[in-house]
Computed example of a mutant assay.
Amino acid sequence: MIATLGRARNVAALLDRLALQSRLPACVVLSMESAEDAPPARAHPFPLIQLFGPRGSCQQRNRALDRLPPDIDLVLFLDDDYVPSRRLIAGLVHFFVTFPAIAGASGRLLADGIIGPGISPKAAVALVEAEDARNEQPSLSVSAPHPGLYGCNMAYRRTAIGDVRFDENLPLYGWQEDIDFGGHINGPLVYTDAFYGVHCGEKSGRERNGRRLGYSQIANPWYLRRKGTMPAGFARRLILRSLAANGVRLLRPEPWIDRKGRMIGNWLAVRDILLRRVHPRRILEL
């Protein structure tokens, strides 16, 4: 399932990659705000469900979960700027069959453009195709259990999800919604080499308001720690890392990041913590 906003071209490219899978998906669910987010109409070798409604990664993913066909056993969440291996679905199915006690898993990232200026779709495809050519039998490695998975590519057993849904108190981009979701799942969550791909880190369609994202960097971990779905140490590291990164890069910011806005948002959230009024939804007022 794919939640998307303002990236019709990326979604079209992802659907084309899914059509090349050695094992096709049983169905694909696209959750969008409006028809402007939809890719061009074309035939695909799998059922395609298109949903429309209010924006927000949590809201959009919840709509998709509520519309899943009843015969789906494994649920794969992909970001719209993710480029999968041709064997991604076959690899994850093999993984879950091999490890029946595992509740959810994220695959290996060959590269992640979110930590830089981004990776072009063409470069991402080249990386994935090269890895497919030399790695015909991916490893079935399993990491130690983790508090949550990486939202750009995470797969869960349908039975483990049950009635669990994403927290719609985390609006818009839903910073750390993947960790929160995993915190409600009973069973180990792990990382594996059994399936892989590239996360392009496309900048269009992402939260461009630095103050909002900066506020979320502090408010969301604080909220999730108090809620109990994020370990205190993990939340503390996220908060300190955001404060440090935005502070260090403030005078020499990257062209694709609004460091000043993020720093202001960070301190607005710290102020609200001290005033005991911090809440993730306050970004809607910024």
Rank of each mutant, 00 (worst) to 15 (best):
E207M: 12
R206G: 05
S204V: 04
R158I: 12
P147S: 13
E202S: 07
N169F: 00
W222S: 06
Q176L: 15
I161H: 06
S141W: 02
F181M: 09
A160G: 04
Q176M: 14
N186M: 01
I179T: 13
R206Q: 14
I218M: 06
K203E: 03
G183I: 02
W175A: 13
R212I: 01
Y191T: 04
I179Y: 14
D163V: 10
R211T: 09
G148T: 01
G187I: 11
P171T: 10
V190D: 12
W175K: 09
N186I: 09
D193P: 02
S141C: 01
E207A: 04
Y173R: 04
A144N: 09
E202V: 02
E136T: 14
F166P: 00
C152E: 11
M154S: 15
G187M: 11
G148K: 03
Y196I: 08
G197Q: 02
F195M: 05
S216E: 15
R208S: 12
N169A: 15
I218P: 01
C200F: 04
E177T: 06
W175G: 01
Y215Q: 08
G182V: 01
R212Y: 05
N220K: 01
Q217D: 14
N186L: 10
R212G: 04
L170F: 02
Q137N: 11
I179R: 11
E136V: 10
A144F: 08
T159F: 07
N209D: 15
G174L: 06
A194M: 07
G214S: 06
R225H: 10
P145G: 11
I218E: 12
N186E: 12
R208W: 03
E168V: 15
S139A: 15
G210A: 11
D163A: 14
D167I: 03
A160E: 05
P138H: 14
P145R: 00
Y156H: 06
L224W: 11
L170P: 00
P188L: 01
D163L: 11
R212V: 04
R208G: 13
S204E: 15
A194R: 01
Y215V: 07
R165Y: 00
P145N: 09
L140E: 04
R134W: 08
Y223E: 09
L224Q: 12
Y196H: 12
D167M: 04
P188F: 03
R206T: 14
Y156T: 08
K203V: 03
Y173E: 15
N153G: 06
A194F: 08
R212F: 09
S141L: 05
N220M: 02
F181T: 08
